[in-house]
Nucleic acid binder design. Structure first.
Lengths: 128, 128
DNA sequence: ATACAAATGCAAACAATAATCATTAGCAGC
DNA sequence: GCTGCTAATGATTATTGTTTGCATTTGTAT
């Protein structure tokens, strides 16, 4: 038997927070955003709910940027640009990817395309 | 002044180990492989050298699979298939990717295409 | 051979995340 | 509205991959 999902205002707030930004935040950031308005929020709750969202597909993980897992509430397939310097993650339209033959390997569920580089802000900083 | 790179048999062994496999290993795996033949090898040395290889581009990082950073000594551009279940990483020929316009974002240095799914071995296990 | 800095082993430090456990609070049935 | 069950939570601790500090070893230029 699977667990019944029960309503929780905190879970709602966490998901709303994720959906309100395009900064592809980490758990800590979400926590910092909500803490002022929900003073008794625990970081553990953020992690627990993020794990749930991940399971049921309401959020996806961009990957690990500078040691932190970054989340995205936009589940439409799209690519990302990650600045190796400051960790900024920007959205890009999904590139058309020529799917290689993966039949021999297993069942392919998803595809992620990530472009790495140095964002303009960091390029400026380096010049100075 | 930049540091002079000095010869080290351990560094050589670590790189050789990485080059001898296509399993895209984690640091711990490399350590376990070499420990028998180099009993006084320290895990810290493996990490330190991996960081160096990464800096000078002799290895690339596939990403974080099940909490472990996975390395690849094949630096030719290619894609990967990662099994979400067992963490196996397989090589794929580089898919042709239609590069979106990233000029407004910054300088793009590299691109990584990863396919996620469930490998045949894990699919079998689930059936049973 | 000598000197100097790079490389290392070891252990302790770190940091992000997960787990534990006692408490709180949805919500279904009465 | 109560009651009972159990999901959700807060606070704290544990876990674990990785990094760092420091004393020692070792490569190498002179």
């Amino acid at each position: 038997m699977e667990k019944v999902r029960r309503y929780s205002p905190k879970r709602e707030a966490i998901l709303a927070c994720l959906r309100s930004t395009d900064s592809h935040p980490a758990a800590e950031w979400v926590y910092a955003q909500l803490k002022p308005s929900i003073p008794d929020l625990s970081l553990a709750t953020v992690y627990r709910n993020l794990a749930q969202f991940r399971q049921d597909g309401s959020v996806t993980v961009i990957g690990n940027v500078n040691g932190e897992e970054r989340y995205d509430a936009d589940t439409h397939p799209h690519s990302h640009f990650i600045c190796r310097s400051c960790g900024k993650v920007a959205d890009l339209p999904m590139s058309r990817v020529e799917m290689p033959d993966t039949a021999a390997l297993g069942r392919t569920d998803s595809c992620s395309v990530t472009f790495y580089g140095c964002c303009n802000a960091c390029l400026e900083k380096k010049k100075a």
